[in-house]
Design a binder for these strands. Structure first.
Lengths: 244, 244
DNA sequence: TAACATTGTGTTCTAAATACACAATGTGTA
DNA sequence: TACACATTGTGTATTTAGAACACAATGTTA
């Protein structure tokens, strides 16, 4: 092993039934939605004795014939019935003792979906949307995974038009602002918020109005199509410098 | 597997010698240093037929009894002889066919070290520092790993005092600016650069001057001790909002 | 002692962030 | 039918950060 991952085929075969392969690989998905003015995450009751009563994230072992992105996409599809979702890898958690049954490393993804479009397989009623801010404790290291993904979401939200994956096609600026406030746990000045969103030039004015609201209706907007990217953004390796 | 990673011990044992464990887990380290006014990366000649003549990053399989972080730290120590290094996880690469000899997923870390303090095990003379901007092609998917890590480094450099891990304890503002310029591939205005660094309040003026320079010597500075963090920063999950 | 390379420093202009108030519109209800 | 209510839509003044830009002083080398 002295030369890194430059394993020769023979070497690889020699060790392939030894300890080196006794690490299982899984993915876990932090699937966010926005419902009742709250950021929620899809969780399921843990069926391990050790974690009885606690919730866990949705995950699965990675199959030998699928890559990590495919595995997380599969989980998302199985659970939400949705085809076209925003999904991004965040971090890999690999502590020795993170899984009580053996050595399992897991790669965490976060996903943003529109609550209205999802059709949960709720036949299994352990599966449900849980408000993120109420969650204190989870099975495994899933609370740490959730926190890390929430941190990443908060970073992304400032700079990239990802948040729209949580909203229906048409939305008012009030709904958008409430969503930012829910994710960031802050309150924002309405005029400044509108100015800033305006500068970003992400939205199209649909010339339609809200309906069925018990107050003066607001204009409806949608995201400009060129910003609808469901696949993970590619990080430019040549960003505009911010230093001097 | 329908309940994610909630594997019961029995389930785990049942599958533990089946295909699910036929995925090997490795780490790869993108170890940067700054030498001769260039950003360099530590590489080694690939010893696979398929990649003859190409360089690869330093990596190794993760041992069943070590964390991912521990594994990458071990590689770093083995190769550079250094004890106290900056190391941060970046991304996990899991394409099915990324390794010609079998299914190997790898978690990439990047590391920043001071070229002067390192004692390379150069007995193996395939191992060397290679200028990052010359590298066009590498073994495996290592060029993509390098690019991703360089992208992360560029992001970090703007906001966090990580760059100082590439410099000796004492440095001049010119050296610091040249390092920023090397990493970001831009040229910066000297007065604006100094103003911006001043605002950040990262440095201590040592009241010492450069020596042995063929021109007017500049003042020497060092990083304030409270910013010396070798361990990965913890991402706050409650950042200051930048929206409105 | 002159040419050279580099240090150290400040102002103006522009862009973005923040703080803040009032008239207009549609709904619900007395 | 008119009033209370909730919310929309809009602009200015202040502060803060970024960008562009020039010149005298210092130490080295030839």
């Amino acid at each position: 092993m002295a030369k890194g991952t430059n394993l020769k085929t023979a070497e690889l075969e020699k060790i392939s039934h030894l300890d080196y392969f006794n690490i299982a690989v899984s993915v876990d998905c932090v699937i966010f939605c926005y419902e009742e003015k709250e950021l929620k995450v899809l969780v399921i009751k843990s069926d391990l004795e050790e974690f009885s009563g606690l919730y866990s994230l949705l995950g699965d072992l990675v199959r030998p014939d699928e890559d990590l992105d495919t595995a997380s996409y599969r989980i998302l599809q199985e659970r939400t019935g949705m085809e076209d979702v925003y999904l991004e890898q965040v971090h890999t958690f690999g502590s020795i003792d993170r899984h009580p049954s053996g050595r399992v490393i897991t790669t965490a993804y976060y996903s943003l979906i529109d609550a209205k479009h999802q059709k949960l397989r709720l036949t299994n009623n352990d599966l449900h949307w849980h408000p993120v801010r109420n969650i204190k404790k989870m099975a495994f290291d899933h609370k740490a995974i959730l926190d890390t993904c929430l941190g990443r979401l908060r970073e992304q939200v400032m700079e990239h038009p990802v948040i729209f994956n949580l909203l229906p096609e048409k939305f008012s600026l009030r709904e958008l602002q409430e969503l930012y406030e829910a994710i960031l746990s802050v309150s924002l000045d309405r005029r400044n918020f509108r100015k800033k969103i305006g500068i970003k030039d992400w939205l199209v004015d649909l010339n339609e109005m809200e309906e069925d609201v018990p107050h003066r209706p607001g204009k409806l907007y949608k995201l400009k199509p060129e910003f609808k990217r469901k696949t993970p953004r590619r990080k430019s390796s040549n960003p505009r410098p911010q230093i001097a």
